[in-house]
Structures are given as structure tokens and as C-alpha cells.
Design a protein around this nucleic acid. Structure first.
Lengths: 145, 145
DNA sequence: CAAATAAAAGATAAAAATATCTTAATATAT
DNA sequence: ATATATTAAGATATTTTTATCTTTTATTTG
């Protein structure tokens, strides 16, 4: 809908990893897949990508896994979305016109500008780590069941 | 991004047809495809669907084509989006969680509720026929070049 | 150092979305 | 009536997205 499925998984994953690694622990792919209801092998690929881009951290071997530190937890959800889906959702035309612009606006240009702005602000203001407490308290959910 | 490509074409097409048939004319698939920069055979399929659903009208044979009357032009862009993409964009969870809700909200639930509302209002307030004049005047564009 | 554990990388598969091609049905005009 | 123009319908192809499977590499621990 707004995001690709890949991106939905990615957002849920980074938030989950931030929550579970707040205390210094690391989280395995299995735990992540179970924790956010995603296919295990698929989320593995996504995590690889996020890790390469520095949005999460990882270490191999026994007691390895994925984690975030105080710095990576400061990344915003907008960073995650840009990494996976690019910035179409923040800048693209709602009707898919490549050269839609202020001087050559599509019929919905101005309305969508406002929506995109709200989308950007929402995601830019949200950091990866800011949901830890509400998740811990059961005030927010990141999993189907 | 917000809509499937099919849906982007559909919105552009209905607006185009409304503009071109305001005077009682009919528009052929070829003209529509050229007028909105879409693949001809693909938009043909989409128009078939829109026509079956009563969002546009059509007639076969020489001098046939697609058109809207004063009533179909009153349909909203929300109607078009629902017909093609369903109502996910108006009701679905931003993170793809099926049972995200007020009582079991995802981390972005409240923010996305506002975005979805704005999206719905924008599209619900816009009728298919309301852009005719601004398109005629060259104040809005529906085509790449 | 060897064994075990975990992510990284690469290859393949399945499903969905997008695009194209062909034939049929219908309406119009001569 | 016949030829022509046009959409409708059905079948097929291509591309992209999503998902899975296998092998390699790195790390830790005994």
C-alpha cells in the first residue's frame, strides 16, 4: 500500500531489534522472523541489506545476531524507508507522472504534496528506538498475534 | 507508491475521458493511451473493468469509444481507487499488520490514521469531472510530455 | 585446532503485477 | 447485407516482487 512488503518487514524488524537489543543482547534471524511474523529467509535478506547500509548491526558466530546501539537507534524510520523503497513516497507524483511539478502539476499535485509532507514528517520524526518502552508495556504491537 | 500502476493509469484515464467527452464526444482507446501515456493494450483492459463497474461508459462500433455523462462524471476518485486497488489505502495498517487496530495499535497507527484520512478526504472530495476546465486551460497536466 | 553456531552470499522458485497479442462481439454506415 | 470500426474477451508473455533453498564465511567455545 504505502510501502512494499519488504519495507513493511524492514520497519517492523528494526523496531523489534531495537527493542530486544536495548539491554545489549543480540537477536537471531529466527527470533526476528517469529517476533514480527515474517518469512525467515526473506527477512534474512532484508537484514543483510539493512546491515550493509549501517541501519542495524550484526555479528556472526555463536551468540551472534543483530542488534542496534545507542547511535543506530537514532536512525529514523524515514532512513529505513529510503533504504528499502527509495524516496518515491516522499517525492513522487501520486498519479505516477515523472515530470509532475509545481509548474506542471497533475490534478492532485497540491493535495499529494501535503500528504507526502505529512508522511515524511511522521517517519522523519520517528526514531528506530523510540518505541521500546511502549512495546515493552504492551501499548504497541508489531506482530499479528 | 500510493497506488498500483494500474490504478494510476485508471485515475488519469477517467479524468482524461471526462475532459474529452464533456461536449458529448467519445474517445478511443488509442486517443486515451496517447493522452495519458499508457500502454494501449493495458489501458484497454483497465477501461473494460471501469466500464463494467459503471465508472465510465462505452459504445462499440464506428464512432464508438469511451465517455462519461453528467452522472458518471460525479463519481469520485475514491470510487476509482476502490474499484482498482480496493480500500487498503483507506483502511489498512501502514506496517502491513492485519489486526492492527485502536486497541492493538502498531507503532505508527495513530499517525497513519491521520494520513489515511487525509488521503480519503482528498480523493472523496475530488470528482472525475472537476478537472476539465483546468486541464483545458493548461493549468493541470495528465501526460508526461 | 575442531566443532558448532550464526550471518552473508548466491542461486533458484513461486506468485503477483504489468504488458501484449489474438480473436470475438457489436454497432455503424454505405 | 456487407464492410469497417470499435470495444470485449480471452490467452499468453514479461517483469517485478516475494519467498525459499543451498553454500560460504566468520566467530566463538571447548
Amino acid at each position: 500500500m504505502f510501502f512494499s512488503k519488504t519495507c513493511e518487514y524492514a520497519i517492523r524488524a528494526v523496531i523489534f531489534i531495537a527493542q530486544k537489543s536495548e539491554n545489549g543482547n543480540k537477536v537471531s534471524i529466527k527470533e526476528i522472523a517469529a517476533g514480527i511474523d515474517s518469512p525467515e529467509h526473506f527477512i534474512a535478506k532484508i537484514l543483510q541489506d539493512l546491515s550493509k547500509r549501517g541501519l542495524i548491526q550484526s555479528s556472526k558466530g555463536p551468540n551472534g545476531g543483530f542488534y542496534t546501539d545507542q547511535y543506530t537507534r537514532k536512525h529514523t524510520l524515514a532512513d529505513v524507508v529510503k533504504a528499502i523503497d527509495g524516496d518515491k513516497i516522499f517525492t513522487g507524483c501520486g498519479l505516477g507522472l515523472k515530470n509532475c511539478s509545481e509548474v506542471k502539476p497533475c490534478p492532485l499535485h497540491h493535495e499529494f504534496k501535503a500528504i507526502r509532507k505529512q508522511m515524511y514528517q511522521t517517519l522523519q520524526r520517528a526514531t528506530v528506538g523510540e518505541f521500546n518502552e511502549s512495546l515493552n508495556l504492551g501499548l504497541r504491537y508489531i506482530k499479528e498475534r
